[in-house]
Design a binder for these strands. Structure first.
Length: 715
DNA sequence: CAGTGAGCGAGCTTCCGCTTGACTT
């Protein structure tokens, strides 16, 4: 008796095969095996939206392996992920491999021997309601994307795209930009009273005037209040101390990991996912390829009992009983958009500390692993306890306050600092010990002018966070969506911020005008609740699609008719063509923006976009200019290139390196400090720093070539 | 670390979500 088990990920296949006996063969299908065709709609709208599925191009080898193994097996079990997409993958496999057995589907939420053995012993039928929900989602996305996009080609520009998810992402960025543009800053003032005490000055902040929240809109109000307070006595009306506890954060989901890696490690979502994938697939540790983290695409914070127990054992042993909460912490994923097929992202073993693994990891892998490990261990540790002191001072009917906190017990912050510490340290400096009833002489009143700030632009991380909150997109698509809207040139990224382009605004405005409801943030939420009803057997998938499509078809026809062809006028630059004297304009090419003569095609002059700086090149006396590399990264070079080859990633300063004479550069670090660096990597001042070269002792090359070549145990 | 690029107009572009490589922007 031989059983073939099919799972989605190759790594998972290897892991599970090692857990089961010799009579089991585990093979991966590597995601979906069939889908709608790329080149045509593939949906028969006239016949109940019947989909036309074909095997996915490029999956030939994977499918061949599955077919061969299926022939040899007595029993086939489909173990794709226990969520909507996984159910559909199982169904496609069943259809394609012609599996007759009704009991062919097994499901498990965690990869432990007991969970898998239990699942293998209880195969079930495929849940067709779930499959139909997935199919409805797939077809709806196809209908929307493959009908609005061609409309944009016709009316605006070829190659454009629109979709349920990407168009909302662009919309969010455009709406935010408008908000920032329309924002009117409000002036307000903050008033501090600096009071003398024998332990030093106490700084208290104005909170209330005549029992109402203090509002100081302008300088006049401040002066008036100052006159009112003149000669008043400042009396400490209360001093209170209170303990406050803070819970650790749950272990990572994909989106939380992307946000934290962006905030703390300045890593892009794509880079974070690539690195996490390496940790998941396995690193050579003492000659053995070891998977270091659980699956990295998940929307769940759930943790297996086994892993939780190991974390508790580790905390007890390493930090002592005090750091252990009485009850193990459970992070139950809230119901809703969460599909909960995988656990949270956590280390596969807490025993593998970041420090112990450091020699086997690249710098990036180490940083990300450390973040994941610490976040997970902290999530099973005791609360942090702070003592918060609040001092209230009254004077002339006004209430002033100061508060600060001191850590009494670090708890989980011993391992994972959530970054609120610095802020509280600052508060603390304002609090000096005083007693209730004390009358403190006034040193001075400090008033400062402030303005309300517009909301910040989206970063990759905050966009992902917002999309997740709106239930738009999935863990596997957060990072790719950002690439899509960047490559369509709907948005651009500068530093960490996302800015909409003219094209982005144009396309969003058109979709808003003609297909308003599709781009509404509620659209996906409504769709999801309909999909839930299909899953529950309360709604019919064809009916759901019809209810959506009938009005959509009308909208589409109307848009085809009414939408005017847009002529995009290129943006005129302040530069003049040196060949014909006409102004130069910005155009979009295959490699991004460039300057072209507005006299095209008579004059074919083109130039790269170069931004001047005020810095001189110390090597040749030329101007230093800002340019963009092919990958889009900003760098600085000499305007006399190629005669002068001076280049640097950071802004040069007019000062030479004392060691090698190369012109130095300056950059501001994350903490706001200015760092002077020599761009010459061979300079003695750079000694000990890693060069960006490929070392022969590479970890990934070895494991990658070794893994598929090694024949898994046969016969 | 920087090259090019657009228009013609034949035939193509495009969606979202699952998974990894192969192959360059």
């Amino acid at each position: 008796m031989k059983t073939l088990i099919i799972v989605e990920s190759p790594t998972k296949a290897k892991t599970i095969e090692n857990m089961l006996g010799k009579s089991y063969v585990v093979r991966p299908c590597v995601g979906h095996v069939r889908d709608l065709p790329k080149s045509t709609m593939g949906v028969d709208i006239e016949h109940d939206f019947a989909p036309h599925y074909i095997t996915i191009r490029g999956k030939g080898e994977v499918i061949k392996v599955l077919k061969d193994e299926a022939k040899k097996a007595d029993q086939i079990l489909l173990a794709s992920d226990p969520d909507r997409e996984g159910e559909a993958i199982a169904w496609h496999l069943q259809q394609y491999l012609r599996i007759n057995n009704e009991q062919c589907r097994i499901r498990f939420n965690e990869i432990t021997k007991t969970a898998i053995q239990n699942a293998v012993e209880h195969p079930q039928p495929i849940d067709m309601n779930k499959v139909e929900a997935q199919q409805a989602r797939r077809i709806l996305d196809r209908l929307v994307g493959y009908q609005i996009s061609p409309l944009l080609w016709k009316k605006v520009k070829k190659g454009l795209s629109a979709g349920r998810v990407q168009s909302v992402a662009v919309r969010l960025i455009c709406d935010r930009e408008k908000e920032i543009h329309d924002f009117v800053p409000q002036e307000y003032w903050i008033l501090y009273a600096v009071l003398q005490s024998d332990k030093g000055n106490l700084v208290v902040k104005l909170a209330k005037i005549d029992n109402k929240k203090a509002k100081l809109p302008d300088e006049e109000a401040v002066e008036e209040l100052k006159r009112r307070l003149a000669g008043e006595t400042y009396r400490v009306s209360s001093v209170s101390k209170k303990d406050r506890t803070r819970h650790p954060l749950p272990p990572f989901t994909t989106s939380m990991m992307q946000q934290e890696a962006s905030r703390r490690l300045s890593m892009r979502a794509k880079k974070t996912m690539q690195t996490a994938q390496q940790l998941y697939e396995g690193i050579q540790v003492d000659g053995v390829v070891t998977g270091l983290i659980t699956y990295m695409r998940t929307d769940s914070t759930r943790v297996s009992d086994e892993a939780r127990q190991h974390a508790r054992d580790y905390v007890r042993e390493r930090y002592g009983e005090k750091f252990l909460p009485a009850k193990p912490r459970a992070y139950n994923s809230k119901k809703g958009t969460v599909q909960d097929a995988h656990e949270a992202i956590r280390p596969t073993s807490v025993q593998r500390t970041p420090q112990a693994l450091k020699p086997f990891l690249s710098a990036t892998q180490y940083k990300l692993y450390k973040l994941i490990w610490e976040r997970f261990v902290a999530s099973q540790m005791a609360d942090a306890i702070y003592e918060v002191t609040t001092i209230e001072v009254t004077a002339g009917g006004c209430l002033f306050k100061a508060s600060g906190s001191i850590a009494k017990f670090p708890g989980y912050t011993q391992v994972y600092n959530d970054g609120k510490e610095e802020q509280e340290q600052e508060d603390l400096s304002k609090v000096v010990p005083v007693n209730e009833g004390d009358v403190l002489p006034l040193e001075r009143l400090d008033a400062s002018q402030h303005f309300t700030q517009p909301p910040p632009r989206f970063s990759e991380a905050s966009l992902i966070k917002t999309m997740e909150e709106l239930g738009i997109g999935r863990p596997s698509t957060y990072a790719p969506i950002i690439d899509t809207i960047l490559s369509r040139y709907y948005v651009v990224r500068e530093e960490k911020q996302l800015y909409p382009t003219e094209l982005g605004f144009l396309v969003v405005d058109l979709i808003k005008e003609y297909f308003g409801d599709i781009i509404d943030v509620e659209f996906t939420a409504t769709m999801e609740s309909n999909l839930d009803r299909i899953e529950e057997g309360e709604a019919n998938w064809v009916q759901i699609l019809r209810d959506f499509y009938d009005p959509f078809a009308v909208t589409l026809a109307h848009a085809e008719q009414e939408m005017e062809k847009v002529v995009i006028e290129p943006e005129v630059s302040d530069q003049v063509c040196e060949k014909c004297g006409k102004p130069m304009v910005y155009r979009m090419g295959r490699y991004g923006r460039f300057l072209a003569c507005s006299g095209f095609p008579e004059c074919r002059n083109t130039k790269a976009i170069i931004v001047p700086t005020n810095v001189k090149c110390l090597a040749c006396g030329g101007d230093i200019v800002e340019r963009k590399s092919r990958s889009g990264r900003i760098f600085y070079g000499c305007a006399n290139y190629p005669e002068c080859r001076y280049v640097a990633w950071d802004m040069p300063i007019e000062e030479k390196c004392p060691h090698c004479g190369t012109q130095l550069t300056a950059k501001t670090t994350k903490t706001g400090k200015e760092m002077i660096l020599c761009p010459n990597m061979d300079c003695p001042s750079r000694a000990g720093q890693k060069r960006k070269t490929r070392s022969a002792s590479s970890k990934s090359t070895k494991s990658k070539s070794a893994a598929p070549a090694k024949p898994s145990k046969k016969k």
